[in-house]
């Protein structure tokens, strides 16, 4: 899976690249409009992550040119511009998702995964992790071929975990993923705890191993110990 990260802030580009590389993607970086334009002309990418304000040009322009050349590339916009008009424009020119800075890398990763799932299999896809299987179209979860009924938020939580295997997820990023970034009260963190407790119980009941580990002071990690 080949990806291009178009971001002029060097440190941020490096972080994104490092994070996504760990997920097994081959990532390249471009810091300016020209550089990105050149790379997109020379190579094919499965997914690009674009900042809108770039030295030398507008990210939207870049997306438009890319869409004309290769329509199959997945596009995620990351921007400090939060205006609805920008979002709408971004989606109009053909981007698949829009993330406002600052964002959680785990959230970006989840969006990339979801985008790739949609791209590759048109949404008809199953995610497998050992004995757990998720049908993302019907939103059904199976443990050892036995269906386990999850609430909407528990399902979202599981999918978020499955997109970020072996990654330490902060409680805040989980809360924001589940309820949007306006949930900022201390309660939401307790809610995260109770949702995780329920999810873990439901999975274990059906015979799954316990994959959810809490990391002291930070949050949770999903994966084999």
């Amino acid at each position: 899976m080949k990806m291009l990260v178009v971001e002029d802030e060097q440190g941020l580009a490096e972080s994104i690249t490092a994070y996504l590389s760990k997920e097994g993607y081959r990532c390249e970086m471009a810091a300016t409009y020209q550089e990105a334009d050149e790379k997109l002309y020379l190579y094919e990418y499965d997914c690009i992550i674009v900042d809108l304000t770039l030295p030398g040009g507008d990210g939207l322009q870049l997306i438009e040119t890319l869409k004309k050349r290769s329509a199959s590339t997945g596009i995620i916009i990351i921007s400090a511009r939060n205006a609805l008009e920008d979002r709408i424009k971004g989606l109009e020119v053909g981007s698949d998702d829009y993330l406002t800075k600052p964002f959680h890398l785990s959230e970006l990763n989840a969006r990339v995964k979801s985008l790739i799932r949609r791209r590759n299999f048109g949404g008809h896809n199953e995610i497998h992790y050992h004995e757990i299987a998720v049908q993302s179209l019907s939103r059904k979860v199976f443990v050892k071929d036995q269906e386990t009924v999850l609430s909407r938020k528990e399902y979202d939580l599981l999918l978020y975990f499955l997109s970020n295997i072996d990654v330490a997820l902060t409680k805040v990023s989980i809360a924001e993923h589940l309820w949007g970034d306006h949930v900022d009260s201390a309660d939401s963190l307790d809610m995260v705890y109770s949702h995780i407790k329920n999810l873990r119980r439901k999975l274990i009941e059906k015979g799954s191993r316990d994959y959810i580990r809490s990391i002291y002071g930070i949050g949770y990690k999903f994966g084999e110990a």
Binding site: E9, G11, L12, S15, I16, A18, Y19, I78, A80, K101, P102, F103, H104, L105, S106, T170, S173
Partner: peptide
């Protein structure tokens, strides 16, 4: 965004 990303790493 940079701080967040680095902390997450």
């Amino acid at each position: 965004a940079l701080i967040n990303a680095k902390v997450e790493q």
